Simulated assay, not measured.
Amino acid sequence: MKILLADDTPANIQILHRVFADQGLEIFIATSGDVALENIRRSQPDLVLLDIMMPGLSGFEVCKALKEDEATRDIPVIFISAKNETEDIVEGFDLGAVDYVVKPFRLEEVIARVTTQLRLRRVDQENQKLVEAKNVFLGMAAHDLRNPLVCIRGFSELLKDEDLDVESQIEYKELIHSVSNEMLTILNDLLDISQIESGKLKLTLKPNDLGKLVERRVHLNKNIAKKKEIQILSELESLPSVQFDFERMGQVLDNFISNAIKFSPQGTVIRVRLKQSENKARIEVVDEGPGISEDEISQLFGEFQKLSSRPTAGESSTGLGLAIVKKIVNAHGGEVGVTSEVGRGSSFYFCLPLDAPA
């Protein structure tokens, strides 16, 4: 984090600079009010230690200018001054300072006050990031839900036509059913990510057979793949039982397989492999799709991330699935990853420890 020290007394600057530099903080120095204001606006420090009686602008004038500027108003200011009258201290707080230290100062006290304000600054910055992430989350969720709702409304309006032929009625009802399933998927993903982020994800861990998990999920996805003339093959090594939540890991594998189906062209093959890799069980889903660029791979497991490649049959995606996958696997003490080559296909995998405790 960054601190600006503004004081026209070299001895004070020297002491404070040495102490806070030793704590790994980045230090900026100003010996006049005008220079302090310019440096603050340019460097955007996380905290300002500000003398009041300096050449040029006074500390009070600098603080007033900072609080009137939207770009700097949230930077915390601690006055450190020989002005010890009550009215001076009150004026400092009235101008927006978070603290006031009287000279001659006790170094331990200054360190404690600065440490407290930097800790609060970190919390404030983290909270701001959460608010921004929440706003993005709500905006994306609203967008993803709005489109299917518009479709349902449009088709239901068409169904109100008494002269509509039976074939069209069946078609519109099927479309409404399909779109409502898309909405349910979005809502389930939103609920899952919310539950995981709030720490309420509960796992039922017990010894399970990963081979059976693969066989079951491959079987469940074969009919979907068949519609696109895609073949799913399983290649299974015999492994000992592993501690995992059968339903949650089924959700992980379903995500990998369904993504492979979405992005694979007609007539290709998807391979689901189970094997041992050192002291871990590794499941990978290998497709013959378009592949993923290196730039996109680094963003894949984040929330609301969508690829530039589009599903080959127009299937929908919330952009939350892989974020949920990563959190579920991490909760098992495992890891997820992907290898890919543009134009050749991708291999999504997860690993679980073979010696996980019960």
Score class of each variant (00 low, 15 high):
K275F: 14
M54I: 05
D192E: 12
T312Y: 04
N127K: 13
K64N: 10
T339G: 00
E315Y: 15
Y349E: 08
K83S: 00
I78P: 06
D51A: 07
T339Y: 12
H17A: 06
F79R: 00
T312M: 13
K327R: 15
E182P: 05
E335I: 11
L164I: 12
L203R: 09
I292R: 04
L210K: 03
V62F: 06
I52D: 00
G139T: 10
K2L: 04
Q195G: 00
E109R: 06
V131N: 01
F105Y: 15
G154Y: 03
I297E: 10
A225W: 08
Q195S: 11
D8A: 08
L300C: 06
D254Q: 07
T185Y: 05
T116E: 02
I29Q: 01
D165E: 13
S308V: 11
R248E: 13
N255C: 15
T31Y: 01
L274E: 01
G291A: 10
R106M: 11
V269W: 04
I29T: 04
G302Y: 08
E278C: 03
R282F: 02
A358W: 06
Q305H: 14
V272H: 00
A11M: 15
V90N: 06
G343N: 05
E157M: 10
V179Y: 06
I40S: 06
Q44D: 14
R42C: 00
I75L: 10
I152N: 08
R310L: 15
G319P: 09
Q266M: 10
T268A: 03
E85Q: 14
L220I: 11
A225L: 10
F246S: 00
F348Q: 01
V179T: 15
I324L: 09
L4E: 03
G199N: 08
G334N: 03
V150S: 04
I196P: 04
G267C: 05
T204S: 08
V214S: 05
P290Y: 12
E70A: 14
C351D: 14
T339V: 13
P207I: 06
V62M: 03
G319H: 05
Y172G: 05
L300V: 13
D189G: 03
C351G: 06
D69A: 14
V19D: 03
L4G: 06
G321R: 01
V35Q: 12
L50C: 02
A142I: 07
F350K: 01
V218P: 02
L5M: 04
G211H: 00
Q231C: 09
H17W: 07
E70I: 11
N127A: 14
D99S: 10
N279L: 10
N259V: 08
A225S: 09
K212M: 10
S198Q: 15
L57Q: 00
N223W: 12
E108L: 03
F79P: 02
V150Y: 07
L158S: 11
Q243S: 08
P207L: 04
D51N: 02
E167P: 02
V131R: 12
Q251E: 13
P76G: 04
V325C: 13
E235Q: 12
V342Q: 10
